[in-house]
Design a protein around this nucleic acid. Sequence first.
DNA 1: GAGTGGTCTAGACCACGGT
DNA 2: CCGTGGTCTAGACCACTCA
Lengths: 234, 234
Amino acid sequence: MNVATQATTHHGIREAIRARIVAGEWELGELIPGEADFAAQYACARTTVNRALQALAREGIVERKRKGGTRVRPLPLPQALLRIPIIRAEVEAMGQTYDHRIMRRERSIAPGEVAKRMQLAQNHELIHLETLHLADGHPFAFERRWVNPATVPEFEGADLTAISANEWLIRTVPFSRGEASLSAVSADADLARALEVAQGAALFTLERATWFDAQSVTFTRLHYHQGYRLNFEL
Amino acid sequence: MNVATQATTHHGIREAIRARIVAGEWELGELIPGEADFAAQYACARTTVNRALQALAREGIVERKRKGGTRVRPLPLPQALLRIPIIRAEVEAMGQTYDHRIMRRERSIAPGEVAKRMQLAQNHELIHLETLHLADGHPFAFERRWVNPATVPEFEGADLTAISANEWLIRTVPFSRGEASLSAVSADADLARALEVAQGAALFTLERATWFDAQSVTFTRLHYHQGYRLNFEL
DNA sequence: GAGTGGTCTAGACCACGGT
DNA sequence: CCGTGGTCTAGACCACTCA
């Protein structure tokens, strides 16, 4: 029946075992055979089975414990790989022309909430930036960003006409880690004017704070145009 | 300096190489040494280096091609593992009591948009369900769900007082795959009344369509209460 | 204490994809 | 063609955890 799956690759064995799980060969929460058993069944090395089962564990299909064996997860882990879109790429993928306009750029004291999200002391001076992202000349997203000049002093003089602040930072501080959150926000007067939507419109919003090696880099709040959706697979 | 990382585990080697990349030992987009080289450097088997580099590739730090070698990704892949919350668990994690109330339950013809998302023919009859999820008795999220009785006939008679439709379906059809999307929606009159928010409030919204083996199972649209955030790490 | 997964090794062959 | 990553194997030892 199954044509696509190879016999003794970790790939093929993973899919074979997955099919057996999905088909209901074992109850939810039930112990499935050990690595040695599967190795015998499929006439391969235990290592190969190990790789297959580890992959299924990463997917959240099974749960593994030393001595405890491998069991089908009582309820599969609801998780998905979310690819965070880069605005330029997103716009261009729709076949539209990307552009951006810097509405404001100044040094200012971090507002309390921002300082908190960046884990900075109060009264820390940051660079504040407001950018409107455009698709075919129409507002696509509005971004408020705070950059920590203590971490990225070169940002002050950066030329942001060719590339956006986001891309500039990714290139300059490539391997920063961060926290993000998604929410829905009502357009206030400023947002409504910038995005050319009615005041009070529901805007999909992405916030992100990033650090490089314990040093706060930036905090950004990105409001997408009305009707935006972020799609992904489960 | 580094105390936590072991010398010749794939784990330790992964972190050692990651540190060298982050430290800027190689340019963005530049080729890094081959597996054999690293194996010599760290005095371990090539297999071990292979596992370490594959992990970095999954993370989006490096890019690997046969014959082409391994190179630092020009721009690191912006991706994150998103754990989709289960409402009951989410509420209980806040230390509140979860409950839910079924507002409506009926058979009806799938609205055009729903039929499309479920990839069903027009005029397909579905079970339509409206559920209000409560935290400590207060509205937490409002859910509209359509279930395909052709795929899950037992759903018609399911007792949904003890467990929610979501949990019932996960238990009955555990390994379904799906598509999801996140967006921001303005509360209409019905939503405003159900969630006890002002009309027009911005609501964080999660839509999900799931299939089991090419058979459409369910489509659901979940509107969270005003101010809800979905957090994750990058 | 004993069983299970976690990992390392050394060697081998294969598959893809630049030259 | 030929170098690089992708993978398999057989055997070994270790680490966690349950009884």
